[in-house]
Design a protein around this nucleic acid. Structure first.
Lengths: 231, 231
DNA sequence: GTTAAATATGGCGTATACGAAAAACTAGAT
DNA sequence: ATCTAGTTTTTCGTATACGCCATATTTAAC
């Protein structure tokens, strides 16, 4: 079978799933730019598999929203418009707000401890990186992921990890040098974590909603700048 | 090509899409019960197509959450557990609550008029059917669909129509003779519509959340009864 | 010279067949 | 009766072929 796939990545599971992972990595790491063609035959040759798994993988990625498939025309790396980004953030406000509320309603001592350690770690990261690539870095992702996991809702968690976060990552591909709200975001995270640890769903939901709306405001401002540059 | 498909259904679009629609109808209309096997070859023979489109269709339906695919074993009609139902309703609270809020923030006169007509129609339906199959009937679906469309967020709308509502329909397959909160639900709908027409996002979101939580409480009570019967 | 139609090409969608691998079922032995 | 081993069924991956659609190129007409 393929040598390319079994080497770098884990060699278990369906070929189509591994393929989808590989292509997703290629996209989210920037090796494949937005709008780029994803021919079935070229991919099949590149990964040394047949067209069947390639079709399945592309179909999967299209469900996740990081590639668009035009019938009889082909698949391309999706390019996310500004309107898409707005809708995406509205979705995120709803889901992560709910996740924070659910996490608060199901909080226990162990989760409070997890948050404490996580936020201390993030504080150190910020201190060592004064320029604050905190947001968009692994730190921000960790916080939101932990919150989503604590919500205890597999459906919400699945949507966030499978569709929303990959699309956000894809959105940020085009707009490099992210502003990074750094310390500000960390303060907001601390208050959210406190509300969750205290078992206060309404406040946790409200704070998380605000936090993501702030994040959207920062990103939208940056999108406007980039658009001006393009003209 | 196929005669079975081109006759009853619209004959445009991909074969795999039409196939997915046909299978989904078979499931949601009760012709295929939960847990039933969906063999690729039998489906291919039944619809007179090859296995390729069948695989694509099953993969699609698995993404929508109405069939489960076990690798190397096959696809079955999904059976939704009580925990799945709870998670599903938590998702619904978040999304439809947000949709109501967004609809309120974007409401205009035309939408208010639409709501007025829709609710009058529903009131007549209730009057003519005193036993109140309003909930789960087309009426309830219409109200929530209209609200979701007015939200102006394609991502939320897509998730609701593509995944959440089909799964809810599948969930209700097992539990017939639905209680139907009828008139009560209609009253709640009216207040939600009023908040949306008034352009009051916070109240609209709050009322919609409550409305769906009430709906969940009714359904959960019924699930408990059914479980007792089964034992 | 510009536009529009006709052609050519490349890629996708579908059909079919075969080998391999995994799961499920069956039968036998302890 | 339970566990194990072998058989069978089904899916998964591969290979190949062909028609159709979409785009690009060329050609013709205005």
């Amino acid at each position: 079978m393929s040598e390319l796939l079994t080497k770098g990545t884990e060699s278990k599971g369906q070929v189509s799933d591994r393929l989808a992972d590989a292509i997703r990595d290629d996209i989210l790491s920037g090796r494949l730019g937005p709008g780029e063609r994803l021919g079935e035959v070229s991919l099949a040759e590149r990964f040394e598999v047949s067209r069947g798994p390639v079709r399945a993988a592309l179909s999967l990625l299209s469900e996740c929203g990081i590639v668009t498939i035009v019938p009889n025309s082909g698949a391309r790396v999706r390019l996310i418009s500004r309107e898409d980004a707005r809708a995406l953030y509205e979705m995120r406000v709803a889901l992560e707000g709910e996740a924070a509320g659910l996490a608060a309603s199901r909080a226990d001592q162990a989760s409070a401890q997890t948050f404490r350690m996580l936020l201390e770690q993030h504080a150190e990261d910020i201190a060592s990186h004064p320029e604050g690539a905190y947001l968009q870095g692994s730190g921000d992702k960790d916080f939101h992921m932990v919150t989503a996991q604590m919500a205890g809702n597999p459906i919400i968690l699945r949507y966030l990890t499978r569709e929303l976060y990959p699309q956000l990552a894809l959105l940020r591909m085009k707009h490099r040098n992210v502003v990074g709200r750094g310390a500000k975001a960390l303060r907001e995270h601390k208050r959210i974590a406190a509300a969750i640890s205290d078992g206060d769903p309404e406040v946790a939901r409200l704070l998380m909603r605000r936090h993501i709306l702030n994040s959207w405001a920062a990103l939208e401002a940056q999108l406007s700048e980039t658009e001006e540059d393009a003209e």
